[in-house]
């Protein structure tokens, strides 16, 4: 019998807010699914759309990008720049047929451990329902490499 599908989700988070929020979720002993691989970056302004494509290239079923709420950026305006970038890139992904549930964006502050745990819970469930990102995995398989996230 094959194992039930467990989604692989990559989360690109900024160190000052969302990572601290994830940390808070941990220290508060909140339970959330272990499907998410967290990649910590200095700021959402550092998160290039290439990261999202790279995560999919390596076989991710979903990607989360998260950082400080507008106005809370440690570097004052990194997240405002990121927001514009996501708006354009999100539209592009939508237009090329990457389903909405595969890429999520959120603002999670250092105090929102509960929000972090709940969000991971809900996106994991959503992607579990949707199943593996077969259309992309087929493209990866053509290249002869295997999913390695």
């Amino acid at each position: 019998m094959s194992e039930p599908f467990e989604p692989k989700i990559v989360a690109f988070v900024c160190t000052y807010c969302t990572y601290a929020g994830a940390d808070l979720a941990g220290t508060s002993r909140l339970k959330y699914p272990p499907n998410v691989r967290i990649v910590r970056l200095p700021c959402t302004g550092r998160i290039s759309p290439m990261f999202i494509l790279k995560a999919f290239q390596k076989g991710a079923d979903g990607v989360l990008v998260s950082g400080c709420h507008p106005g809370d950026c440690h570097f004052d305006h990194g997240n405002y720049h990121a927001r514009r970038r996501w708006t354009a890139f999100n539209a592009l992904l939508h237009f090329t047929g990457v389903p909405e549930e595969r890429v999520k964006f959120s603002w999670i502050s250092a105090a929102e451990g509960i929000k972090f745990a709940e969000l991971i819970d809900s996106i994991t469930e959503e992607i579990r329902q949707a199943g593996p990102f077969e259309q992309y995995h087929k493209l990866i398989a053509e290249t002869g490499s295997v999913a390695s996230v």
Binding site: P70, H77, T87, S106, W107
Partner: peptide
């Protein structure tokens, strides 16, 4: 340049 500038009230309909 649009991606090298921003407004604080830029729309954000899809951010959770």
């Amino acid at each position: 340049p649009v991606l090298a500038s921003f407004r604080k009230d830029d729309p954000e309909t899809f951010i959770l």
